[in-house]
Structure formats: structure tokens, C-alpha cells
Write a protein that binds this DNA or RNA. Structure first.
Lengths: 122, 122, 122, 122
DNA sequence: GTGGTCTAGACCACA
DNA sequence: GTGGTCTAGACCACA
């Protein structure tokens, strides 16, 4: 159900968190859509239900989803995308400031940006 | 002794961590340099010694400084700057990826970059 | 709730860390189990909440538990027992090597082992 | 001068600490023997002088050596071997207790012991 | 109620 | 004087 690749060295629950947040901001998951059950996701991705549970808990804590006990978890309604965007912006500013402080050059960050957004943006 | 401004909503111990890491990567603190005592920093910045202690503990854990009880804390020796830079790069890539995923435009990130690095870099 | 004795000269937060890790590897605490609240443990053991907080933070850092603010702390999911065992084995090998280097006799270590594991194991 | 191999994943300063402590307990370094200068050791082992400095500081703190500024560092006189042995014993007991707690079998520890002390001890 | 942060202040071992 | 540990107690955001 979830088209999410787990890879890299970040904690699995964090990758899953980011993956779901990404699906929401891309519009592949809309307000009030039901998320697949914790056990479902666990089985499909081959990870432990507790790990999925943790990601869901963090998503709820961040206001991106809401859970109704014994019913399921749903994408939150009010301006979810904005919440995600704001959170991402905050992290970005913090990471950019740290990068600047540690002597990383402006040019280096632009290279990463072009790689991610695609250089076509020229 | 430390020229560090504490502001914003990040935890104080985290700001202090970043501030000291920044001084190291800027070369204002070099390998072998002694850091001011925990209580010294606390008094100067008007914060609690425990908070400073926490920052120092995190810096030691990250390999940026080492502490000898009853002696003091010192900037670590082996490639400290590189450690800081690598850590910052990893955070940056992660934050940029999240930003992209959440629909932030390339132009928006450039604006932040210009604000931090200074637009003169043109 | 926790059946843990605090004694000896190791820091309290370390004894508590070891005690909880031990409960997990003995199976008295299983994946997904909720740990008693920080304040709860503090009251029961007669120690300060901050000290418990420190132990919980170290356990989380070691990947043995995970904490969700305003929810609680839970035993981590993936192979917690293995993590504990591996860590213990590493420490053991290191300590035994140091013991050998410092001239401790084989017989002396066996005496300690018999005291801990119980000589009945014969 | 020092016949010490640095390898494995322990911090270098810790390996150096253990190596020197081992030389002392084996009698290859005796009371009041002069240790090679920090820079000497650093050059010979290809590591940073600060790292050596840290090991020396820890050895002094542990009472194994004493340093006379501008003269050098010397192996301590009173019962150095006993100090090392006591410290090793303390670590050993702690590690064995953790091993027991985490479900490691008595037999497993004996295997390691035989490997280190040599099975000839039969 | 819960984890997390922070202050104020004490004590310890060690140099 | 120094790093480190600990108590007592407050406040915060969040559920």
C-alpha cells in the first residue's frame, strides 16, 4: 500500500515518518484518508509493528494524522501540508545555519540542491 | 570568553553545543585548547552549570572535546573540524530532502542561503 | 514495579540502566511493554526524577527503549536482547583481556564467575 | 620504544592507556622508570600528541604514573601493580555481572577465558 | 499524566 | 578549582 523504500542509515521509524509525510505533501494521501493498519504496514515492509507504531505516534504528535482507537489512523484535516512545510523549513534553516557555521561553502550547498531539485531548474 | 548568543527556541544546551562546535570549525578554538570551566561558562552566559555540563557531555560524546575530571575540558585532537563538517553535511542533505518532499521550492531555499551566507557571494 | 536493588558505588543512573537492561534480557520486560513513568520510578526507588530521566535517556540512546513525549517509554522492538548481549560480550572480552594483562590469574576469574553464576552449575 | 599495537575499535587513547598499564604490570616498565616523551610516542605510533597526552593524563589520574613538568613522566612507585590489578578486578566484576544479567552462559565466559589465558592451564 | 528542560544548590574525588 | 553526580522542585508542550 505504501510505496516507500527503506534504506540508508537513518532509523527506520524516521524514514517511515518522512515517507508518509512526503506522501501527504505530494497529495497521494489526502485529508481524512485512512492509513493502512499498523500490522499491515509492518508485514508489507518486513519490519516490526512496534516500529510502525512509533512512526504513527510521531506523526500524530506532529499533527499530521489522528488516530481513533479500534478504528484506525487518518490523515489530519486542517492544513496538514502547511504543518509539514513549516516543520521542514525549520529543520532546513537550522541545518543551513550549522552548515554555514562549520565552514561549508555556499557553492557546496547549491550542488546538493541542484542534485535534489534537478538541475533543469536553470 | 565564549562569544555565543543564546536565542531562539532550541534547547539552551543544544545552542551551546552548536555554538562551541562553530567556534571549533572557525578555528577560534584549536586542538588542545582548554575550554573555560563549566561553572565559568554558566556564570558568563547566565545559565545553570548543569545545562553547560550537558552541552560538554554531548560534545565529548560526539568526539569534539575530551574532559579530564579535576583538570578541565579540551578540544579533541584528531580531525575535529572534519567531524563537525561531516555531521553538518549529513544533516543538511537530510533536511534538504525533506524540504523537497514537502513541496518547498528551490527558490525558497536559495533565499535562506543568501540570507545566511550573505548575498554578496554573487 | 521495578524489582531493582540500588547498591554499590556505581552511579545510580548506571545501576538503573543495568537493572532495566537486565529485566529486558531476562524477558521480564518484552518488546512494546510500557515502562513505568519517570516520576513513578523515582518515587518507588527513592531517587530523583532527573536521575531516572538520565537512565531512560541512556537506554533510548542505546536503542533499548524509545520514548514518546507525553505518552510514555516503551521497550524497543528490534532484537533488543541481542543488542544487550552483544554489548555485554564486548565489555566482557575487554575486561577479561585487561585482567589477563594485569596479572590476574585464571583461577581468580573462575572464583568470581562461580560466585555470580552459582557454583551449582557444575 | 613502546611495543604497543593500536587496533580494534576502542578509542586510541584507551588502547594506549591499557597498553602502558599492561607493560607496567608485566614488569617491562618498573617503578620510577621514565616514560618516553609525549611527542616521542606520538611520532612513533603515528598518532596525535594530544591523544598521547590524554592517555598520560588518565594514567596519572589513575595513580599509575606521575609527571614532573618540564622533566617527564615516571612510573609511580607505591604498589602500582596492585592499583592496576584492583582496577581490572573492579571492571571485571562489573562486566561479569552484566554478562550474567544479559543471559550469557557460564560456559561462554569460560571459552573466552580459555582463549585468553590459554587452555594449557588445564 | 508524560517525557523533557532548566534552575538552584549541594557534595564527591581528585589535582 | 575541576568535571561529575545528585537532590528538590519548577515549568513546558502535548495527549
Amino acid at each position: 500500500m505504501f510505496n516507500i523504500r527503506l534504506e540508508g542509515k537513518l532509523p527506520v521509524y524516521e524514514q517511515l515518518y518522512n515517507g508518509i509525510a512526503s506522501l501527504i505533501s505530494k497529495g497521494e494521501l489526502s485529508s481524512d484518508d485512512k492509513l493502512p493498519a499498523v500490522r499491515e504496514v509492518a508485514k508489507q515492509l518486513g519490519i516490526n509493528p512496534n516500529t510502525v507504531q512509533k512512526s504513527y505516534a510521531l506523526l500524530e504528535q506532529a499533527g499530521l494524522i489522528y488516530s481513533i482507537p479500534a478504528k484506525g489512523s487518518y490523515v489530519a484535516s486542517e492544513g496538514v501540508k502547511d504543518i509539514i512545510k513549516k516543520e521542514a523549513l525549520k529543520n532546513l534553516e537550522s541545518a543551513l545555519a550549522s552548515a554555514y557555521n562549520s565552514g561549508i561553502e555556499r557553492a557546496e550547498t547549491i550542488i546538493i540542491i541542484d542534485r535534489i531539485w534537478g538541475a533543469e531548474a536553470k
